[in-house]
């Protein structure tokens, strides 16, 4: 029993351990210059440097601020639009062709126009994050608020709840599992878009740090930044799952990446 458990854990870790071992062996073999494959120790040292220097914390904060403000905007607007589309046939008739028609268009292509409209600062990036996050949230909220059990709506109306009250107290909670599924898709997208826009044009943020370290041949620092970005993406996803389990306590998370 314990033996199979150990084997299971080993098998789960095997790919990660194998990858790290191969990396370290290649780095130490001297086949490549440390610029191309820096050793894990060097990356760790740079990671420590990033964690302790106040300047790099500012970069982290910049990226987080851009990503989260765009995501927050998209979640407010997206949930509102999705619920309205789900509960009003007129709104759905007007809004759903817009969303389904523009859904497959890569919004990142609009970035140059946004730079002209909103400047090269944070605003253009936040707007692009907002736009990319809006679609999954609207689509899932729309589906969720259409799937609300009619009996709940009827009994709320029967007990004298107004339309607005029904939306806030019945439709939104009933659609919450769907809404959170949309949030879970949108949050990594927010980070991807922030990093991309910072890599394309920026003077701060983690995406800029990656490109700047690459341009100055500090590959170890670049990889440390990559590790930070990865951990950030993971932590945000975990936080979102924790929040979801708190708020949607009546339904177990049984969909994607449940482990």
């Amino acid at each position: 029993m314990t033996r199979s458990l150990v084997m299971g854990v080993l098998r789960r870790l095997s790919l990660v351990l194998a990858g790290l071992t191969v990396w370290e062996l290649v780095a130490r073999s001297g086949m490549f210059s440390p610029i191309i494959v820096p050793s894990l120790a060097r990356i760790g040292r740079e990671l420590w440097f990033l964690a302790t220097s106040p300047g790099s914390l500012v970069e982290v904060w910049q990226s987080l601020f851009r990503g989260l403000s765009g995501f927050a905007l998209a979640s407010v607007v997206g949930v509102t639009l999705g619920v309205v589309m789900g509960r009003s046939a007129v709104a759905a008739a007007f809004l759903s062709p817009i969303f389904s028609g523009t859904y497959p268009i890569p919004k990142i292509a609009l970035f140059p126009i946004f730079i002209y409209l909103f400047g090269i600062g944070s605003l253009a990036k936040v707007v692009l994050v907002f736009l990319e996050c809006l679609y999954p949230i609207v689509v899932t909220t729309h589906a969720g608020s259409r799937a609300v059990n009619r009996v709940l709506l009827w009994s709320a109306a029967n007990m004298g709840a107004s339309r607005g009250r029904i939306l806030a107290r019945v439709v939104v909670p009933a659609a919450a599992p769907f809404i959170f599924a949309g949030f879970r898709i949108a949050l990594p997208i927010a980070m991807v878009v922030v990093i991309i826009t910072e890599m394309i044009s920026s003077a701060d943020g983690l995406g800029y740090l990656v490109m700047y370290s690459l341009a100055s041949f500090k590959t170890d620092r670049m990889l440390a930044a990559v590790v930070v970005i990865s951990l950030l993406g993971l932590a945000l996803d975990r936080l979102m799952v924790a929040l979801r389990d708190r708020l949607v306590f009546w339904e177990r998370l049984d969909s994607y990446y449940a482990e």
Partner: peptide, 29 residues
């Protein structure tokens, strides 16, 4: 099952990581 135990943890762990950050290192290689 064995492939599942080997692959899935890594894939699900790295799922929320923005893949574009690997562009510079891939460019180097």
């Amino acid at each position: 099952r064995s492939l599942d135990q080997m692959l899935s943890p890594v894939v699900f762990l790295t799922y929320p990581v923005p893949k574009i950050v690997f562009l510079p290192i891939v460019m180097l290689w």
